[in-house]
Computed example of a mutant assay.
Amino acid sequence: MYVLSVLVLIGSGTVAGVLFAVALSTVPALAAMPPDRYVYTHTLLGRNWDPTMPIIVLGTTLLDVVLAVLTPGAVPRSLIIGAAVCLAGVSAVSHLRNVPINRRVHRTDPDAIPPGWQDPRPLWRRWHTLRTALAMAALALNGLAVTLPS
């Protein structure tokens, strides 16, 4: 169970860290760009996220479920279940909200931004902020669960 605890901390820490870094640095940089540069840069940045991040998020969610089943105490088990729910939320927000926006941006020709182009950055940022908060909560819940005294 010790190895499983370490793995959920590594997974949830990676998810929280990546999303926090994107929120802190990438989102403001993209917001400062003119639309053509934004579309071009966003497309370049998005190339390596799939399938890496979905695997980490869903894999850690699964590990949390397994850890919850194996954890004897009600309080740590509840915290781990909460972490799994938060990570499932990260996946849901990513898949249902951010990914469709990403696909729309990737279909946009940066050299031919259409008149009346609807800038997706504010909406994307709001959804990203939500999934970042969920990821941070998952990390906190996992951290508490595995460090509670027995």
Rank of each mutant, 00 (worst) to 15 (best):
F20S: 14
P114I: 00
I55L: 15
P120N: 09
R77H: 08
R107P: 01
C86Q: 05
L19S: 11
I80C: 09
L30R: 01
N98E: 12
S94H: 04
A92S: 12
V99R: 08
P114Y: 05
N48T: 12
T71F: 09
A74S: 13
G46E: 01
V27I: 15
R97Q: 14
A83N: 09
I56Y: 04
A68D: 11
G82A: 07
G73H: 11
L123A: 14
A112H: 15
G89P: 13
F20Q: 10
L63C: 08
V85F: 06
L44C: 05
L58A: 14
P114V: 01
D64F: 09
N102S: 15
P76S: 08
G82F: 08
M33E: 13
S91R: 05
S94E: 13
L96K: 13
S78K: 04
V75E: 14
T52V: 15
V85E: 07
H42Y: 12
V90L: 10
V39F: 03
R77S: 10
P35F: 03
M53P: 01
L30F: 15
P110Y: 04
I55T: 14
L44A: 06
V105P: 04
A23F: 07
D36M: 01
R121G: 03
R107W: 00
G73M: 06
V90Q: 13
G82Q: 10
P54V: 03
D50I: 08
P51V: 01
A88K: 12
T108K: 03
D119E: 11
A88Y: 04
A92E: 11
G116D: 07
D109M: 00
T26L: 10
I56S: 06
S91I: 00
P100D: 02
L24D: 05
P28D: 06
L62E: 06
A88F: 13
P122A: 02
R37G: 13
L58Q: 12
D64V: 00
L67W: 11
G59P: 08
V69Q: 12
T108H: 01
L58F: 10
P34Q: 15
M53C: 07
L63F: 14
L45T: 01
L44E: 07
R37W: 11
P76N: 10
D64M: 02
V75W: 15
M33Y: 09
P34I: 02
W117Y: 15
R103S: 07
T52A: 15
V65K: 08
G82E: 03
G82Y: 11
W117K: 00
G116W: 08
G59W: 03
A74E: 11
L67G: 04
I113T: 04
V22Q: 03
L63G: 00
R107M: 05
R121Y: 03
R121S: 10
A74I: 09
V27G: 02
N98K: 05
A29M: 09
T60W: 12
A29H: 13
R47S: 09
H42N: 11
P114L: 03
D36A: 13
W49K: 00
I113S: 02
L45V: 06
A74R: 14
I55Q: 05
W124M: 02
P35D: 05
G116C: 05
A74N: 10
L45N: 08
I113A: 00
Q118A: 13
A92N: 09
Y38D: 02
P115L: 09
L96G: 12
S91M: 12
R121L: 01
A74Q: 11
